[in-house]
Write a protein that binds this DNA or RNA. Sequence first.
DNA 1: AGACTTATGGGACTGCTGTCCCACAACAAG
DNA 2: CTTGTTGTGGGACAGCAGTCCCATAAGTCT
Lengths: 208, 208
Amino acid sequence: MKSMSRPYADVGRTGQKRRTLDALVAAARQLVADGAAPTVDDAALVAGVARSTAYRYFPGQRELLAAAHPETAATSLLPENPPADVAERLDAVVVEFTRMILETEAQQRTMLRLSLAQTADERRSLPLRQGRAITWIAEALSPLQGQMAETDIHRLVLAIRSATGIESLAWLTDIGGLSRDEAVASQRWTARALLQQALQHGAPPTED
Amino acid sequence: MKSMSRPYADVGRTGQKRRTLDALVAAARQLVADGAAPTVDDAALVAGVARSTAYRYFPGQRELLAAAHPETAATSLLPENPPADVAERLDAVVVEFTRMILETEAQQRTMLRLSLAQTADERRSLPLRQGRAITWIAEALSPLQGQMAETDIHRLVLAIRSATGIESLAWLTDIGGLSRDEAVASQRWTARALLQQALQHGAPPTED
DNA sequence: AGACTTATGGGACTGCTGTCCCACAACAAG
DNA sequence: CTTGTTGTGGGACAGCAGTCCCATAAGTCT
């Protein structure tokens, strides 16, 4: 956790700094919502703040977008009364997850693109993509606890997530030539297949 | 196919133009082999050609890298005497495919990043990523012909590829926290799982 | 009010990407 | 030798990202 929820600990709850920061973040969110990938300049302009001031808060576009990223406060993707069956739970989560991705596709692509431009070191200090989906999928698979080792479940979660995110979706549509709906259907089928395989023949290997 | 193999039809086999183009492409390939993502300027400098001249041949970095992309002349990833068993064939291809990706990982990431910056229109006119893997995986699954519809096989190929490329590999290592070897092992397992699922319960759906 | 701290505004500057234009070298043909 | 064509070199320019510096506005404390 740490200061994840409040990345700018030196900025208090009130005062000039807080207002300037809020204005910048609001401007960035606004632009992001419009489908753009605003630069620091863009955000400064919209926020009515000087270029140099904006750069005092955000070293670059990456940091800006990270701060503007919709928090997706959802802590769970399961419905009110979640089914007990693992496959049904997983399918519900995957449907919800892919829906969320499609809704913010432009933004997801931008974040993916920027994260690819990061070095490993930069990734450590500024995680542009936090892997929230891991938690969500793990929750869907929680009934497996007891019948499968914790680490095996984790590997399965990773395998499922790696096949159902924006990365594979972009490939399925851009190169694979599928429509959005077809791509999502493919991802649902894939997630189900991975779970089935793990149930029948064991979890993904630790090594090859 | 078309002019894929000779993207610059107006450049003949000899003459100044040909020599300049060759020098630029050679320089770009050299830099790419060294793990860099050369800009047009870089290539021009190394090639001993003026900036403005280089820009006459390549409008930007994307086009340069597309031309410098190692053709990976391999038309097949199967070994000399390929096994008859589909699962074994697929595993052999996936192993070979992931090995190839790891060998040129920096480059793969760069191409992915640049392709994400493209609009749909640009993608049509300049495919940075040609989806060669589709052919390779389809070849591995060729024994399925007859017992599964052609379109179903195609969907399966797409599902497998979408879960075994640089996109999911980058996620597994960067966000998932796996090592290169673990990520590859996960992808192998995933490919196997998808094939198993298709054999037992049918191919991926056409729609949801 | 005066002194002091803090945050902002704005300009200058570097480096990179990409465009445009003009001069010139190389070469072929009359 | 002159004319014309083709391709190259190089400079000027514009736009963007990012840094640095300095003056000054805004807020705080006494």
